[in-house]
Amino acid sequence: MNPLVEVRELTKLFGSVKAVDNISFDVYEGEILGIIGPNGAGKTTTLQMLLDLTTPTFGEIRIFGMTLASNRPEILAKVNFSSSYISLPHSLTVRENLKIFAKLYGVDSPAARIRELASAFEIDNLMDVPVRRLSSGQITRVCLAKSLLNDPKILFLDEPTASLDPDIADKTRAMLKRIKAERGLSILYSSHNMQEMEEISDRVIFMDHGRIIAVGRPAEIKAQFDGASLEEVFLKVARR
């Protein structure tokens, strides 16, 4: 199977600090690849480089077989991103925000797509409410709806459920798994919630000090570090 994302010898230096140190990995079609690791491990910097928000110092990123650096608009039109740390213009309603991003991504039949996603994320009743009046959990759901507007082939998620209550977080994970199964969506998922990562990830990349220290299915990672859960593995790595 050809990988959708190919990362080779990716390195990011901030001055003399190696935030990401010569990492290589692939993301395959229909796969949820989790990135875990302690704070400062290089997870967020890696995601930023994959979205062309930060320029790598060395290495190559190829997405859909194209080099990211020279095919940015073509690639970004077919991927999307969400994080609990971003928001949307506060004075605009949910519907206005989604309409704008539908236009930015050149979505066909935006009204129908927005209705479909509003129903999936249970935000139908919030469509005409300004974003500033939403709770942080509601904003996260709206951002997730935004991230699926263009029916992306790859979704980059940075702690997407961090501000959601357990019920909505569970529904969000279930929905992501359903979309992945139905449409072959690939997801690169970063989170500090180890239980969530164990539940949702097909494979996991474990990063520490900018390096990949383990790659594999959650069960393989647990076996490699002799831990009963990813949480236990995480604590072993973080405290060693």
Partner: peptide, 9 residues
């Protein structure tokens, strides 16, 4: 919202 803009095409 800036990141939403710059991760779009």
């Amino acid at each position: 919202n800036l990141l939403n803009i710059f991760v779009s095409p």
